[in-house]
Amino acid sequence: MLAHTYFGTNRLKNMKLLELKQKVINKILLIKAITIYTFQQETAYWANTWAHVLSTFFYMLSMILFIDVVYSNVNLVAGYTKNEMLLFLLMAQATYYLSWTIYGNLIDLVENVNNGNLDLVLVKPISSLFYITFRRIRLFRVAMDGIPPLIFLALAINWSALNISFLPLLIGIIISVMGTVCSLSFHLLATLPVFWVGESRNIVEFTSHFEYNVGKIIPLEGYGKDFKFFFSTIFPFLISTGFSTSVILGKSEPLPTLLWGLTVTILMLTVRQFAWNKALKVYTSASS
């Protein structure tokens, strides 16, 4: 009898594990399908794509020139040498491009709420929050725009002058991904007023600029204690680049920083889900 119950429970556990495995596989396959789908869209018009590649390349060139000019008079800015600052810029640009793979979906969401096309998203048998987040994964576009300037920037860094070891590097990369998740979650929260007041494009634009100015220009060490706390909790914009670069360069302790990043990420994801559910409850759907 006991053996029977034991095997019964075991079988149930196995079934649940199999179910979970299938769910994960389905999500991965869906992400793959979405990536291919977005690739097909991105490559529908080639000329437009090339224009953007040039613009991002020249932006990067101007940023390197700017750093060069700044460091021609000083040796340290916020405790960062020129090389360290270039690494910070590399991390800032890498996380920027990473978030841009799905950032456009937020603007699409505002439009879809306004024109009622969200209706057709909500009737799909997948998590609506998952779908609106990953509806387009602009990998190709971001790779085209991002990889050439990032290589150019990486070549400008004197790597041998930087003291980087494997574990902090790995933890730093994990933190930067978590930080990107935090920032995107925050931008999604900034998008949601559209459900109540009918528009939120300017709010999202504001939070994006805010993130760029706070998190991608000044390193973590450039902030005072209160600002550090403020910009890594309520406005979690320091995590993706500030925290991660600081850890990679050995200026912050890896494990406590990782734990901090993880806690904020979990909190942001929870708030995001809660706010999304609230928003859907007030969704009125544009009239047909």
């Binding site: 399908a33 789908y37 869209q41 529908a44 018009y45 024109n115 096309n117 209706d119 057709l120 048998p125």
Partner: peptide, 23 residues
């Protein structure tokens, strides 16, 4: 919905159907 479209404007219907197949 007669006045809303679920198909991607720049792609072919088959490409949109393929995504639905996965969904």
């Amino acid at each position: 919905m007669g006045n809303k479209t679920s198909l991607e404007w720049d792609l072919t219907p088959m490409q949109s159907f393929q995504l639905n197949k996965r969904i």
